[in-house]
Design a protein around this nucleic acid. Structure first.
Lengths: 342, 342
DNA sequence: GCTCCATATGTTAGCGATAACGGCATCCGG
DNA sequence: CCGGATGCCGTTATCGCTAACATATGGAGC
């Protein structure tokens, strides 16, 4: 097969139409499988397109049809492990709908989120899936005025723009507190990320404190970190905290990764878990299933969240627009082996 | 601020031009910071655009200008931990160039890769960054004919379409074999993924075997897995292999995650590492830095690869096209604590 | 005064595709 | 034998924006 397109000029419908002896419109119909075309011409056109190596120009197509098969997905981070999971479930669910996710990353910065959103909306996607309920006023206005379905995911504690799919992090924290207290722990420390913009972590902590307060308990110690390898940070923080407050009997970590670091440290230092001290994280990371001991955690329903969000977008982009819905999923406590049985 | 766009009709340049009393062209110039516009009109236009909530239509803009600020990035997986790292380094490097990465995932399937590539090229990106050198003939033809810079990343063992940035996985495997033999290990097992399409893992194994052969050694046992949590699989496979071939003195894992699983299993079972048995993985996952014992590994230069690839695309999309270049990076052995000192 | 040039704006003609409609055949039932 | 329904394909007019060129306007220089 010799070079089909030597002239370096990008191919257009016209090239295919000339090569196959039919009008551009007919070529367009064949390539999109729309409208009536005889089998004979269909063959001719497909053959011509293939040998030329024609790739349709969706930019022109989208402009003419006013339709774009892209769904903007805006998340805070890719290195968090949490979001790739959500992403792949969105991707799987969208697979057969003709829609395609396009990812934008904000690094937990509201300003970056606003920029990314602006950039993505300028491509006129068919829908937006965006993590969290907290946005800059400008970003919120853009979402409201975009005229496309919007699904805010991960969190339901707050007011959404349109549809919302997620869990209540406040209640997740609260339930964890209840479970810990029910297991008889009383002197409790919290370890988490130093991220003012991670609203979900914040809400979990608030809910957790609330749960403790109901039992007349206050957090005995707290420690926060930023950056670095989470596993290593979990170790360091655990050591620091137990040195500072040796009589703690429970450590609640804001994510599984630092929790796993803490768990490893405890084991390396011969500390009886869950006897002397109990541990719990948050997320239900499949990644950690191979640990010697299963860390207590709470599944954040990430797969289910992505799936539902994708379904809403797909459903609404087919059948016209109807109002937004709110879907609250229920995170499940996975007690693992780091909490005493009550 | 009341709803700026009640009519539900998407805003266009014309709306902004009418609201600010200048021509569409001038509005366009202001919003793109191109050409001479007086400060007074600039202010007027920006104000009008802001209060209306206008978001430019890049689809129309791209069609008219024949320029698209997107770079297609095509990778096999997001859950691998390896690729998010590459991605973020690409993203960082592109940050100030006006270019934006758009990600496509292939799940290690050549057919899916071909589809994703087709889909992305139909948006006429300014460049393509794609993992690996192995593609379907059709995909390769598309890359050759796209008329845009192409960078194949991760691997240099083979013939590239245009530019190539990566490491030699064959030599990485070979060097690991040499290091292991130098440390005095002789009865060696290999554990890896059952993925015929993971060419880089395959090449590492080939190079590894070659290195062993040079010392007159053959692999004593092999075990492969597919799916599931890598950490857990590492445990299971290690147990299975050591039960089957108890006199092994070294295990080489095709990635750090299963290596970490194996390491944990050995420690849980009181096996002396690296005395009785040595272990090594591949990748240099920052994630694992918090492990009690540092696994021997080889850094795959993922950050550097993403950075260089992005630079090539950015450089070439500015200054016209010049020929492709091949950049081979050198992976560094990180001996950790799971190989005996020679 | 006039040219010459820089600055600031408007006009025109696409970019490459698709929606909408129109024009022939052909076919079918009454 | 004719009205209307299909099947198949072409023509025309956008879609929203920008490149390229054209057009004022206002000094500077002689």
């Amino acid at each position: 097969m010799s070079r089909p397109n030597d002239s370096r000029r990008p191919l257009t419908l016209r090239d295919v139409s000339e090569a196959s002896g039919v009008s551009e419109m007919t070529v367009s119909r064949v390539l999109r499988n729309r409208g009536d075309v005889s089998d004979a011409t269909r063959e001719k056109v497909l053959h011509a397109a293939k040998t030329l190596g024609y790739v349709p120009n969706k930019i022109a197509g989208a402009l003419a049809s006013q339709r774009v098969n892209l769904v903007a997905v805006i998340i805070p981070s890719l290195s968090n492990l949490v979001f790739p999971k959500v992403l792949s479930s969105i991707s799987d669910e969208l697979e057969d709908t003709g829609l395609q996710p396009v990812v934008g990353v904000t690094n937990y910065s509201p300003e970056k989120e606003e920029q990314v959103l602006y950039e993505m909306l300028s491509w006129r996607p068919s829908g937006v899936i965006i993590a969290g309920l907290e946005h800059t006023p400008a970003a919120r206005a853009m979402l409201e005025n975009a005229g496309i379905p919007v699904v805010e995911i991960m969190d339901v504690d707050g007011e959404g723009v349109d549809s919302v799919v997620g869990i209540s992090h406040r209640r997740a924290g609260l339930h964890m507190a209840e479970a810990i207290i029910a297991a008889g722990y009383r002197k409790i420390g919290f370890l988490g990320t130093k991220m003012p913009e991670d609203h979900r972590a914040r809400k979990r902590l608030e809910g957790f404190k609330e749960g403790l307060a109901k039992a007349g308990i206050e957090l005995a110690d707290t420690e926060f970190y930023a950056g670095g390898s989470a596993l290593a940070k979990g170790r360091e923080m655990t050591e620091a905290m137990l040195k500072r407050t040796p009589d703690l009997d429970f450590l609640y970590y804001s994510n599984d990764m630092i929790g796993a670091g803490g768990l490893l440290w405890c084991r390396d230092n011969g500390i009886d878990v869950p006897g002397k001290i109990g541990l719990a994280g948050f997320n239900g990371l499949e990644l950690l299933e191979g640990l010697s001991v299963q860390l207590a955690t709470m599944d954040a329903c990430r797969g289910e969240i992505g799936k539902k969000a994708a379904q809403i977008i797909a459903g609404r982009s087919q059948s016209g627009m109807i109002g937004g819905e709110v879907i609250e999923l229920e995170p499940v406590l996975e007690p693992g082996e780091t909490i005493r049985k009550p």
